[in-house]
Each structure stands twice: as structure tokens, then as C-alpha cells.
Amino acid sequence: MAVPQLDLHKHNPGRDMPMSIQIKELPAGNVVETYKFGETTVHICDDFIVQTPSQIAKVIRQMHEVGWDILQNQKSEAD
């Protein structure tokens, strides 16, 4: 059974909705990319990028595991 919403969604194309909390300070880290979407600014920082060889190997291993799971799911759906 669907739950009724109190406020219906109103699509307003081309306009950004203002956030109630605006943070003026950037998080710690080196800003490597900045994008503007309308009135919204997105900063991409490098503080969450893995840097040690063991961390890189772990991320690559996780990517391989996810890819293998996707292939297995596609194979089982095809059968």
C-alpha cells in the first residue's frame, strides 16, 4: 500500500533549490576540480584518494570482485 505524501512533489526545471544550511568553508584537502551547476558549486578534493600501494591494490581487488558479481548475475539471468 502506498503511503500518501503530505507535500506533493513540484518539478521546477532550471532552478536550484536553496539549502537551509550553507557552509562557507571548504573541507580540508586540495581542491582539484570545481564545477558550477546553475547556482550550485561543487568542489572535488583529493583527501579521499587512496595513495599507498596496499590501498590501491585493495580498491582494484574490490573493483574486480564487483565486476565478477555483475558478470555472474548477468549469466544467471540469461539462463
Rank of each mutant, 00 (worst) to 15 (best):
E33W: 05
Q22G: 09
E65H: 07
M1A: 15
M19A: 11
A2P: 11
T52Y: 09
F37M: 14
W68N: 04
G14T: 04
L6E: 15
C45F: 11
G29C: 01
L26G: 05
P13N: 15
G38P: 14
L71Q: 14
V32C: 00
Q62G: 03
T40S: 08
P13R: 07
Q74Y: 05
V66G: 09
V3K: 08
Q55G: 02
S54Y: 01
R15C: 10
Q22P: 06
M19D: 08
T34V: 15
G29A: 01
L26M: 03
L71S: 13
G38D: 13
M19R: 10
L71T: 15
S54G: 01
N73Q: 14
Q51D: 13
K10A: 12
R61E: 15
L6H: 12
H9F: 09
D47W: 00
I49W: 09
N12K: 06
R15M: 10
Q74M: 13
P4G: 05
H64K: 08
T41D: 15
T40F: 06
K58W: 01
V66K: 14
I49F: 12
S20H: 07
H43R: 02
L26A: 06
S76H: 11
V32T: 14
T40P: 10
I70E: 01
G67A: 10
L6K: 11
I56Y: 07
E25K: 04
Q5T: 13
D69H: 10
A2F: 04
Q62D: 14
V50F: 03
T52M: 10
D79A: 09
W68V: 00
D79I: 06
N30L: 02
G29I: 00
D47K: 00
N12V: 05
V66M: 15
E77Y: 12
R61M: 08
V59S: 02
S76F: 08
Q51W: 04
L6W: 11
L26D: 10
W68D: 03
H9S: 03
T52H: 11
P27A: 01
A28P: 09
R15N: 13
E33C: 02
C45D: 04
K58G: 00
R15A: 08
P53N: 01
K10M: 09
V32Q: 02
L8C: 01
V59A: 02
V31F: 05
T40L: 14
H11F: 10
R15D: 14
A28I: 10
V31W: 05
V66N: 15
S76I: 13
H11Y: 15
H43F: 10
M63H: 15
I60A: 03
M63K: 12
M1Y: 11
N73C: 15
N30Q: 08
T41A: 11
S20F: 08
P27N: 00
E39P: 07
H64P: 00
T34L: 04
A78N: 12
D7K: 09
